[in-house]
Amino acid sequence: MTRQRWQGWGPGEQAEQHYLVEPRTLAGGGDIRHVSEFLRASGWRDKSKTGGPLLLESPDRTVRIAYDPYVLPGGWTIHGTTDGRNGEWSAILGRQAPVEIVAGLTDALTRPRSAHAPNVWAPLQEQNWHTRFEGDHYTATSPDGSAWMQYRQSPGGEALWWTGARDTQGNGWSAQFTPNTPMHLVQTFAAELANPEPVMRPRGRVPHSDRIRTRSVSVQPSQLSAWQQARITAAHAATWARNSTRNTRPRTTARPHSPAGSARTRR
């Protein structure tokens, strides 16, 4: 059978085999550029050292994001300083946390905070996650039981968010958010955690798990490049719009007024 060429394929391009994987929570880490390139396009500074782990800093220097695959267990560390609204906070995510889910949190760091009160449980309940109390903990579990989101409180009053995914073989990842983590960030993370859409992984990068379902697709390199560029372009556009609004915002303080005819002091 002749493979049908998709409209828009470049001349001479060879299709590459990829897989659509679901649930996304067990799809493996993926390409970290999905996170890092969006942040760079949003004006974040790259503080990485040659040959070392990824390290990015927000434009206002209040948040740092690191990805270190060279240590065990390795993974993502996100640290925020006190900003007047929230105290110091951090999030630690395992290296097998899918980048699409990590981006639920990191993308939100580049956008203005919504005026609406965040509700972490809402996106989970919308996707029919099961919620229940377990002592001092409140837990939401995915319909297939492989992923969870839990608000935990110790007898001493210390609280944190604990989340992740596991298959029956013990493969998976977990993440923790300290109590001061801004709730709108935890909510956007939860929305991507519960997103029922599959994610794409190249051949050889699909985890061996009895809990995932895959569908083979043929993808051209130009298509992958176009999808990645669309995400970067969106980040550039949003950043430009924010900066333009900030630069054209009317002044809230009056300029000093010099009486007509008064002499100006030379410097």
Rank of each mutant, 00 (worst) to 15 (best):
D144I: 00
G52F: 08
H137T: 04
F189T: 05
V186L: 14
G51A: 13
S244V: 12
S174W: 05
W173I: 01
S216T: 06
S42W: 06
Q228R: 15
W6C: 10
S58N: 00
M183K: 11
I78G: 05
H257F: 08
T2M: 08
Q169E: 09
Q127P: 03
G104C: 11
R242N: 13
P11F: 02
L224W: 03
E134L: 03
R213N: 05
W89D: 03
P73W: 04
P118E: 01
A41V: 06
R249C: 03
L105V: 04
R213Y: 00
G164C: 10
P256G: 08
W227L: 15
Q228F: 07
L109G: 04
A238K: 12
A235H: 01
Q176M: 02
F38D: 04
G12E: 11
W89Y: 10
T131N: 02
S36T: 15
R231F: 07
G87E: 11
R3E: 15
W89C: 06
E134G: 11
L55E: 07
R5E: 12
D136I: 07
H18M: 09
A260T: 09
V206P: 07
G12H: 08
R95W: 03
A190Y: 00
R40H: 09
A27R: 04
W9I: 13
Q229I: 06
Q17V: 15
R132S: 13
S244E: 11
R213C: 00
F133Q: 11
R166S: 10
T81L: 12
Q229Y: 11
F177M: 13
G10S: 11
A66N: 07
T81M: 09
V186I: 12
T2C: 03
D68P: 07
R5G: 01
F177T: 02
W9Q: 15
V219Q: 02
S225N: 05
D31L: 06
A194C: 08
Q229E: 15
A237R: 14
R113P: 03
F189P: 05
R266E: 08
Y138H: 13
R203D: 14
T178G: 09
L93G: 03
A260S: 13
T50F: 11
G145Q: 06
I65Y: 04
E126F: 00
I78P: 05
I101D: 00
I65F: 06
W121R: 14
A165C: 06
G170N: 09
G29E: 03
S218V: 03
P73C: 04
H208F: 01
R267Q: 10
S36G: 07
W227C: 02
Q153T: 15
G74W: 00
R132I: 04
A175G: 15
T2H: 12
A147S: 15
